[in-house]
Structures are given as C-alpha cells and as structure tokens.
Amino acid sequence: MDKFINLVKLSVGSENVDSMSTWQATRRAQTDDGLPRHVTRMWPKREAEILQGGSIYWVIKGAIQCRQTILRLDEVIGADGIRRCAIVLDPTVHRTETALRRPFQGWRYLKPEDSPADLRDQNASDTDLPPELATALAEIGVR
C-alpha cells in the first residue's frame, strides 16, 4: 500500500461547496489544461507523499466539507519573479463528513487516518443541510 499524505486548506470567500465549485469552474476556464488549481507561495516538502494519492481537504465556514484529489504540483513564476506552487486538482469535488477546523494560514498536512470520510451516496441528502446545521451537528459529535 502506498503511503500518502493529504493537505487541508481554507477556501477563503466560499460560502458553501457549490460556491467553491462555481469559482473553480470559472478559473478552470482560464487555464490551458482545463483543470482547477490553487497557487500557494510554499512548495510542499512532502511532495512525493502527496502525489501518491493525496487530496486537498477544503475548510469552508469553519469546517472541512469536501475534498479534491491532487493530480500534480506545477511550478509557477509570478510577475514578481517568485517561484510558487500550483496545486493542480481533479475537478471532481467529493463531499465529506463535516469536521470542524479553526482558522489558520496557508495549508497543513493531514494524515489519512485523521481525514474525514467521504459521504456515501445514500447520505447524499446530507449535503442539503445548511452549513450552520452541519457544523452544529459536528460540534456535538453527531456528524
């Protein structure tokens, strides 16, 4: 079994999973390969582990709510000449169980065993819960 690591990142400005997906679709149209990406200043030191099956788990409104598989890391040189890392993502967004997260800057590593599980198809109706309710349920350990 391959050993991999995930990332967790705030989706700043997103109101919910749908708004994040809509924003990515708009940005995706501006790229050559049609894949969404998130550009960050720091290059992950654990690149090899990330690329063995890692995902980025998105924190929206104080809780992890979804994830996307990381396909590759591309070098991007900004107009200022500084090297940055473009985290290239699979466009498929997998909704996850809600997991509370305090605000933080940048991204953090997230071990697979600490990552929230994907919602199963039979729980698809769970995605219709208002984010505030999903967060409240997570706070009391119901979700």
Rank of each mutant, 00 (worst) to 15 (best):
S19F: 02
A25C: 12
K45Y: 13
S115T: 11
K45P: 06
R37L: 08
K111P: 01
R46N: 13
D33A: 01
E47L: 15
W43Y: 06
Q105K: 14
T26M: 11
S19V: 12
A79T: 15
R108E: 15
T92G: 03
G81F: 03
C85A: 12
Q30K: 15
D80S: 07
I70R: 03
S115D: 05
I64V: 13
D80P: 05
D80Q: 02
L73M: 08
R41N: 13
M42K: 15
Q105Y: 11
I60D: 02
M42C: 10
C85L: 05
G53V: 05
R102W: 09
L89T: 03
C85G: 04
G78Y: 01
K111D: 15
D33W: 04
G106C: 00
L71D: 08
A99C: 09
K61M: 11
D114Q: 10
R28C: 08
Q24M: 10
G62F: 04
E49D: 11
C66M: 08
T40C: 05
I60W: 00
W43P: 00
R84N: 10
H94K: 10
D90C: 07
E97N: 08
D74R: 06
P36K: 06
A86K: 03
R27I: 03
L35M: 14
I77C: 03
V88C: 07
R46E: 13
W23H: 12
R72G: 07
Q68A: 08
W107P: 05
I87V: 14
L100M: 09
V93E: 04
Y109R: 02
Q105A: 14
Y109G: 03
N16G: 09
W43G: 04
L51M: 13
K111H: 14
W43F: 13
R108A: 15
R41L: 10
Q68C: 08
I64F: 03
V76D: 12
E49F: 09
E49H: 08
E113N: 04
R72P: 03
Q105P: 11
Y57K: 08
P103L: 01
L51V: 12
V17I: 11
D114M: 10
A29R: 09
I70A: 01
Q68W: 09
Q52M: 05
L71K: 14
T98V: 13
M20Y: 03
G78A: 14
L100T: 10
R84H: 12
I77H: 01
W23Y: 11
D80N: 11
T98R: 09
D33L: 02
A29Y: 06
R108I: 07
I70Y: 00
G81P: 09
P36F: 05
R37P: 05
G54T: 08
L71M: 13
I70K: 01
G78S: 14
S55F: 08
I56W: 02
T22N: 14
D32N: 06
A79D: 15
R72S: 12
Q105G: 14
L51N: 11
D80A: 02
W23C: 08
H94R: 11
S21G: 06
S19N: 12
V76Y: 12
E97Y: 09
A99P: 00
N16L: 13
L35N: 12
R37Q: 15
P91G: 07
D32E: 15
G81D: 10
A99L: 12
I82S: 12
D33M: 05
G62E: 04
R108C: 09
L89V: 01
A29S: 12
I77P: 04
D33H: 02
L110I: 01
L73K: 00
I87G: 04
N16E: 13
F104P: 14
A48F: 06
I87F: 01
I87L: 06
